[in-house]
């Protein structure tokens, strides 16, 4: 049994302790907004926040987040920064297939929570762990700048 808090709700899950947080979210809790892409922290599709830090849930054993606060794409919009990011994503129609976008948004929110005026270099550093095979990168960059403007 592992206890964790997901989007503010305490959860008690009966899984093997080595189970990655990703599969606990997706299969046990049936919160499927967090995506499986590679299983080895190479693509960022599974990005969630643990105690405010972006982590790759596919390589994070659930036992290591016991008692910690996990925020996923389903709950991130309670924050003002996330709403600004989602609005910018909408305004610029960033998405194509959309499969990586939960992870992109979680990484972008984590960046803007720390840095309200990111430069292109800051964006590259924060976002280069998130692969988009549709290559929506031009718009991701523009949308992060747009969100930063709206938060200023």
């Amino acid at each position: 049994m592992v206890n964790l808090v997901v989007n503010g709700t305490p959860q008690r899950v009966d899984v093997a302790p080595d189970t990655p947080l990703l599969w606990v979210l997706r299969d046990t809790l049936q919160m499927t907004g967090t995506k499986f892409g590679c299983g080895m922290a190479m693509c960022g599709a599974c990005t969630v926040h643990v105690d405010g830090q972006p982590v790759r849930s596919c390589v994070t054993p659930v036992s290591t987040v016991a008692g910690k606060k996990v925020v996923t794409i389903e709950g991130v919009d309670r924050g003002r920064v996330a709403r600004a990011v989602q609005d910018a994503w909408k305004k610029l129609d960033v998405v194509q297939c959309g499969y990586c976008q939960s992870g992109q948004i979680m990484s972008a929110v984590a960046l803007l929570e720390k840095n309200r005026k990111p430069t292109d270099t800051d964006i590259d550093t924060a976002m280069s762990g998130n692969v988009c095979r549709c290559a929506t990168y031009v718009r991701i960059r523009a949308a992060i700048h747009e969100a930063a403007r709206s938060l200023a």
Partner: peptide, 21 residues
């Protein structure tokens, strides 16, 4: 015209095969 699929692809609600339960 804004894309019809943007809204549900930015909040985790869009349903892919991987998400079927």
């Amino acid at each position: 015209a804004p894309r019809k699929d943007t809204s549900e692809k930015i909040n985790g609600k869009a349903r892919f095969t991987q998400d079927v339960h």
